[in-house]
Design a protein around this nucleic acid. Structure first.
Lengths: 233, 233
DNA sequence: CGCCAGTTTGACCAAGATCAACGCAAGTGG
DNA sequence: CCACTTGCGTTGATCTTGGTCAAACTGGCG
């Protein structure tokens, strides 16, 4: 547990991929991380179960232990926007507002650690190193958010899907062969497209040999170069 | 100068509106803010002048004193994406990467304060209160980034323009009557639209009486309700 | 005066949304 | 064990929004 925290320590952000995998943990930071770990509680959620709802009070933040979590928002007209998918090691639910602007739901069966917000802020106060780690993580998150703005504002459908596949490959496994835990609808709402468009683009990728998809949720990237070229802005 | 910092203290983020206008400055935070102010230098830029370029080293971050700054990125195909407009009191240029992912340019004649990155990080290490303020500011920035994702991913052209007009009204003046310092091209690149579409939507708003625009850069919101209703997701 | 950069408008086109249908595998209940 | 339902995924036909291309208008400024 300790070793795990040391390698991908708990980190902050509304959601997003931000373990400190490559960060050096300065003296003092490690103690704070141990203390942080000790104030967390473990929770399990079933597929599609709500972790917190839009409008709930922001009393805690979370770190994914296993499974997948989506950070999302439902509109009056029934449409949905997914801000982020969180995988093992990712953190979510830390916001500056008092109320949740987004909901968090388990995509598949998921286990998360839950940290009280106030206590972890006090820990950061006592440990400059932890404070700095948190700031760095937030900036990383901000960088990721800007990248997503580019995707949503400037990329066409094939580019978005290619970008998504590469992102998933890197975050899930770092390999060309992996499972997609989320539905086509989830993917569409994450990329700002419709289910139909996502399907069509995936079919097109399959047709030109860029990917193989024996089952809808089992993916194999065959021409990474082609996808990379597309995803490159 | 000191009073100014106390009211809208220097704050961090790639860009964005994040003065601590409403934040209480806890004991100790103020000292750090004074120290921060003392390490800053004042710089002036002419209209369209570059403050830093994409790829430059991230040695400093900035706070707008007067004028307008755009944070933007140019693509190989000539298109441009504007991540943020920064007005008086806003800060920009603090990133986690070593190289600038975006450029910063003066929209009109602008004056900024420039702070060395390393020195301000050390200040935050010494002052938990400052560290906490910075974290809060970053989270605010993250919230803003998520709102922009919603805009870029889910809103149609009239909604985006309505949202933009309301945002500018609130940030520039808090009134219904104000100047738009940026060009139609800037607006388009900020909203993920083309100049033509921005013009058409503005003309439509003018036709239905939602706004008046005696000159292209002078705006008067006449039916805020209509615009609000549009902008509401 | 004419030039120039920025703005506006119109005609046309294409990417992706919408609407509709079908396929397919995993339940579910008789 | 087999109809029947249900939830996803896929595919096709059509429509809409906003992009593209082209041209005209405007207000400074040499």
């Amino acid at each position: 547990m300790l070793r795990d925290l040391g390698q991908t320590p708990a980190v902050i952000g509304i959601g997003g991929s931000l373990g400190f995998d490559s960060a050096i943990t300065p003296a003092g930071g490690l103690d704070a991380l141990i203390a942080l770990e000790s104030i967390g509680t473990r929770q399990s959620f079933a597929r599609n179960q709500e972790i917190y709802a839009e409008g709930d009070a922001c009393k805690h933040w979370y770190k994914v232990v296993s499974g997948t979590v989506r950070i999302c928002k439902l509109f009056a007209d029934g449409r949905r926007h997914i801000a982020e998918f969180c995988f093992s090691g990712d953190c979510f639910g830390l916001e500056d507002l008092d109320e949740r602007a987004f909901a968090a739901e388990a995509v598949d069966d998921a286990i998360v650690m839950c940290f009280p917000r106030g206590a972890s802020e006090r820990l950061a106060d006592e440990s400059p190193a932890l404070g700095r780690l948190l700031r760095e993580a937030m900036l990383r998150n901000l960088t990721a958010a800007h990248a997503r703005m580019l995707l949503l504002g400037r990329m066409d459908a094939p580019q978005r899907v290619a970008h998504f596949l590469i992102e998933m490959g890197e975050r899930k496994a770092g390999e060309n062969h992996f499972d997609l835990p989320m539905s086509r609808n989830d993917i569409a709402d994450y990329l700002g497209l419709t289910v139909e468009t996502v399907c069509r683009v995936l079919s097109a990728f399959k047709r030109d040999g860029s990917i193989e998809m024996p089952q809808p949720h089992h993916l194999d990237i065959r021409k990474r170069d082609t996808l990379d070229a597309l995803a490159k802005t």
